[in-house]
Design a protein around this nucleic acid. Structure first.
Lengths: 122, 122
DNA sequence: TAGTATTGCTACATAAAATGTAGCAATCAT
DNA sequence: ATGATTGCTACATTTTATGTAGCAATACTA
């Protein structure tokens, strides 16, 4: 199990550039989904499992360990919750929600099965 | 091959909430790395392959198709490049670079092999 | 306090995704 | 016309993720 962090070889950077370590970590299934959910408050293992709909306990456990190791989440008496770092990261992720809903989604509306090109200027 | 987009079932949302579709798409290996690189300008397939250090052509090709399908990148005479949507998304990703370097990385500095807890207040 | 429920996992088999290497057809430069 | 470069595809192997079962530990209930 490779735990991406600044300074160690990660996907995209053998020297472990911090941003590449972060993208490697977040570019694993469910990593961002977990952070997104935990922003709503601490959550137990089972609740996270339900929220994520189809995550396996194996993967959830692995991802949680990675995120704890990366200092983005912590274990508390209430289960798992975002650390200060995790909260900061969520702040950076959050705008993607608005953008996805209000900008990105719109370019799929007038899309036909035959793959109409969307209007890039919108 | 599932191509995540708003409105279709994706990881984290059977109803295809836009933000979950986006997180599913970006939460695949190299997706954000490719976008990050393309912000520096259009790039050929081979150049992307070199940049990404260890990406296989199979995966690169798959990821490129997904990103084109998602309207985030386009093919031009210079190879692949960010679409207007892709550029907007990069703007949202960019702050992660600064944060990773200046905030996140610092909590690994005083970390020992025995896993010293980092100072969450920093 | 004995029984029941819930939680946080682990084990393990199977399926899906990513890697690594080879190589080929199409275009480009000479 | 020849050689180099590009954009892939094929395919075998390895790594990741899924799905299901179940178990030990704690918390809750009668």
């Amino acid at each position: 199990m490779i735990l991406p962090k600044p300074g160690v070889a990660v996907r995209g950077s053998k020297t472990g550039q911090p941003v590449m370590a972060l993208l490697d970590l977040l570019g694993r299934s469910w990593a961002m989904g977990i952070i997104w959910h935990l922003n709503e408050g601490p959550s137990t293992f089972r609740r996270l499992q339900q929220y994520c709909e189809s995550i396996s306990p194996t993967t959830l456990n692995k991802r949680l360990k990675e995120l704890v190791h990366a200092h983005l989440i912590v274990r508390t008496k209430d289960g798992y919750s975002l650390s200060e770092y995790g909260k900061q990261l969520f702040e950076l992720l959050e705008p993607m929600g608005f953008w996805a809903r209000h900008t990105w989604a719109s370019c799929f509306n007038e899309e036909s099965e035959t793959n109409t090109v969307c209007n890039e200027k919108n």
